[in-house]
């Protein structure tokens, strides 16, 4: 399978944006799913990993927006920090997967994912502190609390995303990162 074309990247991005709307709804049936699995982060991270940072950025920015428009979740007032957070995820996972090449697909994936999730959470923590507390509350506390409560989510996504990426490669829907290995 060749390099992914611009058209295919664009359509994959569109699909991932649509999944940002669909997945949180699909997870409704599972108790506490929204806070445990953070279903909207999955397509965003994946879009960055596969299509690169500009597409990841678009997916992260547009995903929460469309979800809010079509399903009312998240409520519009939460959008700014969420859009920022997801945009950073998509952008960072894309950037890292373009830069990191260890010749081992798993290592590349984990490095890109962990890097993206950390950056996203730090930026989101700061953004929330700025928006909700107007800069008057201890920003470090906000960012820290946000990061600690999100740890289980990080662990879960480190299991989910590589599984999805490998399934897509096996099915021949995305090219293998290191062909012939």
């Amino acid at each position: 399978m060749k390099e992914i074309t611009v058209v295919k990247k664009a359509i994959i991005t569109a699909i991932c944006i649509a999944l940002c709307v669909v997945l949180p709804q699909a997870f409704h049936a599972i108790p506490n799913a929204g806070t445990v699995y953070l279903p909207m982060h999955i397509p965003v991270l994946l879009c960055g990993l596969i299509c690169g940072w500009p597409y990841g950025l678009l997916c992260g920015a547009a995903g929460p927006l469309l979800s809010s428009l079509f399903t009312g979740m998240p409520p519009a007032a939460y959008l700014p920090p969420m859009v920022i957070e997801c945009a950073v995820y998509g952008c960072a996972s894309g950037f890292l997967s373009q830069v990191v090449h260890t010749k081992n697909t798993y290592a590349d994936l984990y490095i890109s994912l962990v890097g993206a999730m950390l950056t996203g959470r730090i930026v989101a923590g700061l953004a929330r502190a700025l928006i909700f507390a107007g800069g008057s509350y201890s920003m470090a506390a906000w960012a820290g609390g946000y990061f600690v409560t999100a740890l289980p989510g990080i662990v879960i996504q480190l299991v989910l995303l590589p599984s999805i990426v490998f399934a897509l490669m096996k099915a021949g829907l995305i090219p293998a990162r290191y062909p012939g290995r």
Binding site: K8, I11, I12, A14, I15, C16, A18, L19, V22, L23, A26, F27, I30, Y37, I42, L46, V155, I156, Q157, V159, L160, S163, I164, A167, L168, A171, L173, I174
Partner: peptide, 19 residues
């Protein structure tokens, strides 16, 4: 994490197939 794989993996496969 493993419990949602039967849902997530097919959803992504189906979506990417359409893409």
């Amino acid at each position: 994490a493993k419990a949602v794989l039967p849902l997530l993996v097919p959803v992504f496969l189906a979506a990417f197939k359409r893409a």
